[in-house]
Amino acid sequence: SEFQINEQVLASWSDSRFYPAKVTAVNKDGTYTVKFYDGVVQTVKHIHVKA
C-alpha cells in the first residue's frame, strides 16, 4: 500500500523489529525515507513499512 509524507507508520529496524516512524519522503524507486522517534533517518523498502 502507498504511504504519504508525514504519515505515522511502523518501519523495520536492523533487528527486524518494527518501530514507530514518520514518512519523510516517498522515493521513485519504491522506497520510503522514514524518521524514527529517536531522530534516526533511514531509507527502507516498502515491504519494511506497515501501518
Rank of each mutant, 00 (worst) to 15 (best):
S1K: 14
S1A: 12
S1D: 10
S1Q: 13
E2W: 11
E2S: 13
E2T: 12
F3Q: 01
F3E: 03
F3A: 03
F3H: 04
Q4R: 12
Q4N: 09
Q4C: 11
I5V: 13
I5W: 04
N6L: 07
N6D: 12
N6S: 05
N6P: 04
N6G: 15
E7K: 03
E7M: 12
E7F: 08
E7D: 15
Q8V: 14
Q8D: 14
Q8M: 14
Q8Y: 15
Q8T: 13
Q8P: 10
V9Y: 03
V9C: 06
L10H: 05
L10V: 06
A11K: 02
A11W: 02
S12R: 15
S12P: 09
S12I: 15
S12V: 13
W13E: 01
W13Y: 15
W13A: 10
S14W: 10
S14I: 13
D15I: 04
D15G: 15
S16T: 10
R17T: 10
R17I: 12
F18V: 04
F18W: 15
F18E: 02
Y19C: 12
Y19H: 06
Y19M: 11
Y19D: 00
Y19I: 08
Y19T: 03
Y19E: 05
P20M: 08
P20L: 11
P20D: 04
P20I: 09
A21H: 01
A21S: 01
A21L: 03
K22G: 03
K22M: 14
K22P: 01
K22D: 03
K22R: 13
K22S: 09
V23F: 02
V23G: 01
V23E: 00
V23Y: 01
V23Q: 00
T24R: 02
T24L: 15
A25W: 07
A25D: 04
A25L: 06
V26Q: 04
V26I: 13
V26C: 08
N27C: 06
N27Q: 03
K28Q: 12
K28F: 10
K28T: 11
D29E: 04
D29N: 08
D29F: 03
G30Y: 04
G30S: 01
G30C: 07
T31D: 02
T31A: 03
T31P: 02
T31V: 02
Y32L: 08
Y32M: 04
T33S: 06
T33W: 04
T33G: 02
T33A: 02
V34G: 00
V34E: 00
V34D: 00
V34R: 00
K35Y: 09
K35P: 00
K35M: 15
F36N: 00
F36A: 00
F36V: 00
Y37Q: 09
Y37T: 08
D38V: 07
D38E: 05
D38C: 15
G39P: 02
V40W: 11
V40L: 11
V40R: 14
V40K: 13
V40M: 13
Q42Y: 11
Q42R: 15
T43W: 05
T43L: 05
V44G: 03
V44H: 03
V44W: 07
V44A: 02
V44I: 09
K45H: 12
K45S: 15
K45Q: 12
H46P: 15
H46L: 12
I47M: 12
I47E: 14
I47T: 15
I47K: 09
I47W: 12
I47G: 12
I47P: 09
H48K: 13
H48N: 14
H48W: 12
H48C: 15
H48A: 10
H48E: 09
V49N: 05
V49K: 15
K50N: 07
A51S: 12
A51L: 11
